[in-house]
Write a protein that binds this DNA or RNA. Sequence first.
DNA 1: AAAGTTAATCGTAATATTGCGATATAGCAA
DNA 2: TTGCTATATCGCAATATTACGATTAACTTT
Lengths: 109, 109
Amino acid sequence: MGLTRTDNYTSEQVNLAQLLKVLGHPARIAIVQSIIRTNKCICGDLVTEIGLAQSTISQHLKELKSVGIIQGTIEGTSVCYCINVETWDRLKLSMNELLNAVDANPNCC
Amino acid sequence: MGLTRTDNYTSEQVNLAQLLKVLGHPARIAIVQSIIRTNKCICGDLVTEIGLAQSTISQHLKELKSVGIIQGTIEGTSVCYCINVETWDRLKLSMNELLNAVDANPNCC
DNA sequence: AAAGTTAATCGTAATATTGCGATATAGCAA
DNA sequence: TTGCTATATCGCAATATTACGATTAACTTT
């Protein structure tokens, strides 16, 4: 099929999976890290920073934007991208809940 | 292409992306949560718990195992799966570093 | 207006993922 | 041995992803 079934899962599971899937690519990790690090509106600098074609970077930005991880506002001829804090906090909560669940219940084998 | 280029990124970026990619599917989130929650060796219970075919569950388990998120030991006729704590701790460190980087540097737009 | 810059979109090719049924493998029970 | 159960693997079809070059859109500068 190739189509992920979503009807068996809670919306929380689907939501977290969606965010992690988008972050599950080194280029998008690098993009997010770069946006965080520069702490300012960066634009096409990513094309030279990461060694990918402009259209490829734009596509990755679109995916990050589509799930609300980043948001962009037009600044003249270029675009300012930054982290969407609401989505980020939601991710942080869900992910920490998952990550910390293991410590409480150590594994058995 | 369809092939992710890895030569532009640090091994940390590739590694984190790999783990997040595998976790980026609701079935695998559900599987991991189930393993954590039951805190014991669960096996084919997943097939009834999650509504997917046995072969599909087996495939998801294989992917989780391939990146070291879970490990399985044979228990007679069934298999005991549990969280691989070393990988989990590595994920926790990398992910927290990324997640907490935003708080320090609030976004600009 | 014309040319330049920046980013998005389109089209395409190669590859990966998802899911299933069918089959194989391996241990346990009769 | 003969079945029974549990899991893994194979083969397949449908769809998604990744990456690129070419083009378009929109704003700036000359």
